[in-house]
């Protein structure tokens, strides 16, 4: 499918999606609560068939967090970037996608570790890189490390 077809098909599922075509890929902006129904449809519907999640990360935009999913279809060779906005920064939650793409299990643990996003229904949500008693989430913009010595 080309970009226009993707846009109209996604709009059929989720009318509230906002599109952004300035970058290399088609960006689809949604709210975090709308993520799971849409993403489930994107994987299971053979029209989309996004079987490959090649990047999952989070961006801290200071007033909100944004989950970014880079999706690719090995059969149709089309790519979209799904951006889910998490408005509640203090108690950020989003549905897990690791039952759809298994690679998300470790990637979501990484995001939990470094951004503090809690993934609902994740089978094993623990810190991945840092020790279990670490305070704060280092990749957030407001993270301050007391032990850091600035040169």
């Amino acid at each position: 499918m080309n970009t226009e077809e993707l846009k109209s098909s996604i709009s059929n599922i989720l009318p509230s999606a906002i599109y952004d075509e300035t970058g290399e890929f088609l960006n689809v902006n949604i709210a975090s609560e709308e993520l799971y129904p849409l993403i489930n449809e994107l994987r299971s519907n053979s029209e989309f068939d996004f079987d490959y999640l090649f990047c999952l990360t989070c961006i801290d935009w200071k007033d909100h967090l944004m989950m970014v999913y880079h999706l690719l279809s090995k059969t149709h060779q089309h790519t979209i970037v799904l951006k889910a906005k998490i408005s509640n920064r203090e108690n950020s939650e989003i549905e897990t996608v690791c039952n759809i793409w298994r690679t998300a299990e470790l990637l979501e643990r990484e995001v939990f570790d470094l951004f503090g996003v809690k993934f609902i229904n994740h089978p094993d949500l623990r810190r991945l890189f840092l020790s279990d008693d670490w305070n704060g989430y280092p990749l957030r913009k407001d993270y301050v490390d007391e032990n850091m010595i600035s040169l």
Binding site: D51, Y52, L53, W101, R102, T103
Partner: peptide, 8 residues
């Protein structure tokens, strides 16, 4: 299938 799903 697993290779794609696991992002290998």
């Amino acid at each position: 299938e697993d290779a794609i799903s696991y992002g290998v």
